[in-house]
Amino acid sequence: MTRKLSHPTATRSGSGWARAFRSLGRTGLASLAVVAGALLLGTPAAHADVTAKDVQLMLKVVGFLTPPVSGTVAVAIVFDAANGDSKKEAETLKGFLDAAQGGPIVPVARLYSQSDLGSLDARVVIVTVGLPPAELDAVAATAQARKMLTMSTDPTCAKGGKCVLSVRTSPKVEILFNSAVAQGAGIEFQPTFRMMMTGV
C-alpha cells in the first residue's frame, strides 16, 4: 500500500503533465523564451583567415610533443608562389611567429616555396591553404621522411592524410589528428593531449 504525500503546490486537478506545464508558469515560459531566443541568435562562423590565436595554438600544440620540445624551434611555412592567397597567408603566419617570442617555444620561421622543398629543414612545417595537390604531396612526403610535424589551418590537410594536424580556434578550438601520418613521421604527443584531439 503506497501513500503519496501531496505536494503543497500540486493541489489543482489534471494529469501530471498538465500540472507540470501549468506549474511551469511564468518562470518556465521565461526560460523557454531564453532558449528560443538563444537558438535564433548567432550563426556558425565561416572558416576565416589565419589568426594570431591559430598560431598561438600551433605553438601550444608543439609543447605537447614527446619527447618534450622547448626553446628554439625551426618552423617552415610552405606556400605556393603562384597563389597570392597562399603567399599572403604565409607572410601573415611568419609575422605572427616572429612576434611570438615570449613563451617556452621560440619559433624561428622561414618561408619555403615549391622550389625550396629540397632544402626543407625544420621541426615543424605549416602548410598554407591552397597548395596544388602535387606540391602538397611533395611536402607531405618530405616531412614524413624527415620526421617533421606538419600542421595547417585547413581541415582537409589532416583529413586528406597530408598533415599530422589541422587546427583552428574559431568558433571554437578544434584539433584534427591523423594518427597514420603521425606514425609515419614518428611524431608522438603526450597521451592525455592525444586523447583530447579529434581523430580523422
Partner: peptide, 26 residues
C-alpha cells in the same frame, strides 16, 4: 516532478523518506 512508490508510509510518515514533494518543482 518526482513520484514515490513506497511500500511504507501508507498511513503517515513512519519512515523519514519523502522524495515526492521533497524537491521544488521550480
Amino acid at each position: 516532478y518526482i513520484s514515490d512508490h513506497l511500500t511504507v508510509n501508507s498511513s503517515g510518515l513512519a519512515y523519514p523518506i519523502l522524495y515526492e514533494g521533497g524537491a521544488p518543482h521550480n
